Measured scan of single mutants.
Amino acid sequence: DMPHRFKVHNYMSPTFCDHCGSLLWGLVKQGLKCEDCGMNVHHKCREKVANLCGI
């Protein structure tokens, strides 16, 4: 059981939050991507995600 390793990410195409399902808005640093499993989340959704990475 490992925690997610979220890192700020710049998305080049429209991407949706894997937690709430809404679009990650903006041009740069729109959200966070787990370096291990690739989960994408809003900055505000980070604390709502279970801290178990499903690598």
Rank of each mutant, 00 (worst) to 15 (best):
C17A: 00
A50L: 08
C34L: 01
Y11T: 04
M2Y: 12
E35I: 14
H4R: 03
G38C: 14
C45H: 11
E47N: 13
H19K: 08
E47G: 11
T15C: 07
H42L: 04
P14K: 04
S13Q: 04
K48F: 07
Q30A: 02
G26Y: 01
K29T: 12
G31L: 01
I55M: 05
F6W: 06
N40H: 09
K29A: 10
S13K: 13
D18V: 07
L52C: 08
C45M: 00
C45Q: 00
G26I: 02
K29L: 08
H19P: 14
G26D: 03
S22C: 13
N40S: 11
V8C: 04
Q30C: 02
L52H: 10
N51S: 15
G21W: 15
S22H: 13
L24G: 03
D36Y: 06
K48H: 11
L24F: 06
M2G: 03
C17I: 00
Q30Y: 02
H4I: 02
F16E: 04
W25A: 04
T15E: 05
C53F: 15
G26M: 03
K29W: 08
C37A: 00
V8T: 10
A50N: 09
A50Y: 08
V8W: 07
E35F: 11
K44Y: 13
D36V: 05
R46T: 11
F6C: 04
L23T: 06
H9E: 12
L32A: 10
G31M: 01
R5E: 04
V28P: 01
E47M: 08
F16D: 06
K29F: 08
M2A: 03
E35R: 09
G38Y: 08
V28S: 08
I55K: 14
M2I: 15
D1N: 13
H19G: 14
K48S: 10
N51K: 08
C37D: 06
Y11N: 03
C34G: 01
N10K: 02
T15G: 05
N51Y: 05
W25V: 07
H43A: 08
G31R: 01
E35L: 12
D1A: 11
D18R: 12
C37W: 00
L32I: 14
E47A: 09
P3Q: 15
K33I: 13
I55C: 11
K44Q: 07
H9T: 14
C45W: 01
H9R: 10
L23D: 03
R46A: 07
L24Y: 02
G54C: 15
C17L: 00
H43M: 08
V41I: 11
F6E: 03
G38L: 08
G38D: 11
M39Y: 12
G31K: 01
S13W: 09
Q30P: 02
C17W: 00
M2N: 14
V8E: 08
H19R: 11
C34K: 01
G21Q: 13
F16M: 14
N51H: 05
H9V: 07
D1W: 02
M12Y: 10
C45E: 04
E35A: 14
N51P: 05
E35Y: 11
V8R: 07
N51E: 02
D36A: 06
V49Y: 08
M12S: 08
D18K: 12
H4V: 02
C45R: 01
L24C: 15
Y11P: 03
L27A: 04
